Amino acid sequence: MRADDRIAIADDGAGIVLAPAPGEGATGTALVFIPGAKVDPWAYAALLSGLVTDDGLAVVITTPGLNLAFFDLRPLSTFTGLAPDVGTWMVGGHSLGGVRACQLASDAGALVLFASYCANDLSGSALPVLSLAGSEDGLSTPQMIADARHLLPADATMIEIPGASHASHASFGDYGAHPGDGTPTRPTPKSAPSSRIKSANWRPACPDAAAGDIRPPRPGRWRRCPSQPGRWRRCPSRPGRWRRCPP
């Protein structure tokens, strides 16, 4: 990843934090991103950087032991604690990292799957979910994602990117070809994750001080979800989520 004055980078061993530099319009929303198996976490930094520079999100890329995130048993709070000023948290991951993200999703405000699918049942939740997949993926194939679709909420946003493979040529990660990835049939821009999330007009739920509950994003609109000073705050009982708390 090239140096960029718009991004503040920190790496404390638990995760790599990419955040808007001071004065760059941080939105108070962030993504915990869990890498795929045996992939260097830094391989995702350049592709996810567009979420920071273009959209004001912070990104925490987890750094599991032996690069095997699926067996990383640390709770989501381990990673949300690396960016304490964030109020709204999404969790997501690539490949097996996405499977792990599904297991942590109950502690987040939204779930984003990158060439992945859930093994646990989230269909009964109100969680906003976005699935980004490639038509040429040879590992998380379109059929496998379709077969696991029933485990997601009925209103999950499902996007299949034409020509994208599992990871090679920067479809979802910039770490070169792995056996079984599939062959991409068209080039994928380096800002693919950011542009695809934005093109879906998708955003996690945010607090509505008037309604007194969590409000889903407005269809067809990409917007910021500001906190409500004095009325909403983070509560220890629901790490990474905003709710109305007792005084």
Rank of each mutant, 00 (worst) to 15 (best):
M1E: 13
A3K: 11
A3V: 13
D5Q: 13
R6H: 10
A8V: 02
I9E: 12
I9T: 14
D12M: 06
G13R: 04
G15F: 08
I16K: 01
V17G: 03
V17M: 03
A19S: 15
A21L: 12
G23S: 09
E24N: 11
A26F: 06
A26M: 08
F33N: 01
F33A: 03
G36L: 03
A37C: 08
K38M: 14
V39Y: 07
D40V: 15
D40E: 14
P41W: 07
A45H: 01
A46I: 04
A46S: 12
A46Y: 10
L47V: 00
L48C: 13
G50N: 01
L51T: 04
T53V: 15
D54C: 11
D54E: 15
G56C: 12
V59G: 01
V60A: 05
I61V: 15
T62Y: 05
T63R: 15
G65A: 10
N67V: 08
A69M: 09
F70Q: 13
P75E: 10
L76I: 12
T78L: 04
F79G: 00
T80F: 10
T88E: 04
G93M: 01
G97R: 00
G98T: 04
S106C: 07
S106A: 14
D107A: 15
A108M: 10
A108Q: 00
V112M: 04
L113Y: 02
S116H: 07
A119V: 14
A126S: 15
L127I: 01
S131V: 15
A133W: 03
S140Y: 03
T141R: 08
M144T: 07
A146G: 13
A146Y: 05
R149C: 08
A154I: 10
E160F: 14
E160A: 14
G163K: 11
G163F: 04
S165R: 03
S165V: 02
H169F: 11
A170M: 02
S171L: 01
F172I: 05
F172R: 02
G173T: 09
A177S: 12
H178W: 10
P187V: 06
P187C: 05
S191F: 08
P193N: 07
I197L: 15
N201R: 03
W202G: 01
P204F: 06
C206F: 05
P207S: 03
A209V: 14
D213R: 14
I214W: 08
P219E: 00
G220R: 08
G220M: 04
R221D: 09
P226L: 00
S227I: 14
Q228A: 15
P229Y: 09
G230D: 12
G230I: 04
R231D: 11
W232F: 07
R233C: 11
R241T: 10
W242H: 03
R243I: 06
C245D: 03
P247K: 14
P247E: 12
P247H: 13
